[in-house]
Design a protein around this nucleic acid. Structure first.
Lengths: 133, 133
DNA sequence: TTTTGTGCAAAGAGTTTGCAACTAG
DNA sequence: CTAGTTGCAAACTCTTTGCACAAAA
């Protein structure tokens, strides 16, 4: 299983060649259309999920049912996302956070399987407050 | 605006009388049906959103497009959620987290408008690993 | 009686699935 | 050959909206 197919290579290329790190399934789909190498949306979703399971891509749920995928960076720590209302997304890491959460899960007799931390922001001089996400 | 209506009171009662703190719109809807006091699903959603805006309820996005609502507790700090694969949800607070995130947002010239932190866990003696969420 | 609220049905957004045609190994 | 892959269309899940009717103030 996991054959070396054209759609899979194209999707990986998009991530490798994109200047933007975080891509939604739709971003990937449209970038492939632009490149005149369209891949069906269903395939994009299937491949992204497979890549996630294979550890080739990391999925991040940004809330409201939206996920972005990204190529893991070498030796990278788990990180959170800071999402600005202007569409920009940046990353951050909080040292010791994972250990702290693990401790909390253990206190319930559970084991931590993952976590997501997303901060929402707006441009500082923007009075429009209706986007507290 | 914001009239004192039956559906609104019923929905608030559900939260006040529920032993479970975090309720989805669907939870609320079904609890009202059980009580023989059904309220339309559209109304449930509308009222929950209004209550959120009014600060009567807090909304938490648990990822995958699902939100839970809860009654804010007196003098309560912002908190994260620890979601176990068995359906249980518990809360936790990480002192100083908000300040840290505010600092990060400021570094981008943004201001923090909110954040969500959700940790996922599984019962400790459960080998089934396919729910890393 | 004017304004706000309700709730059915329909629309959306993002994602997943069924399945017949296709293709890598 | 044949198990794995593709991609269209249809289904799904959670949530929002349009709108005619009902209820507050």
């Amino acid at each position: 299983m996991f054959r070396n197919t054209v759609p899979r290579m194209l999707i990986l290329d998009v991530f490798r060649e994109s200047t933007v790190r975080h891509l939604t399934a739709d971003d990937v789909y449209r970038m492939l259309v632009e490149r005149q190498q369209p891949v069906g949306m269903a395939t994009v979703y299937k491949v992204l999920s497979q890549f996630e399971q294979a550890g080739i891509l990391q999925r991040n749920d940004l809330g409201q049912g939206r996920s972005v995928f990204e190529l893991p960076m070498e030796g990278e720590e788990e990180h959170g996302h800071l999402v600005c209302s202007n569409g920009e997304v940046s990353e951050f890491t909080l040292p010791g956070l994972k250990e702290e959460l693990s401790r909390l899960a253990n206190a319930h007799g559970w084991r931590l399987t993952g976590y997501v931390i997303t901060a929402y922001a707006a441009p500082a001089f923007n009075n429009n407050d209706n986007d507290t996400h």
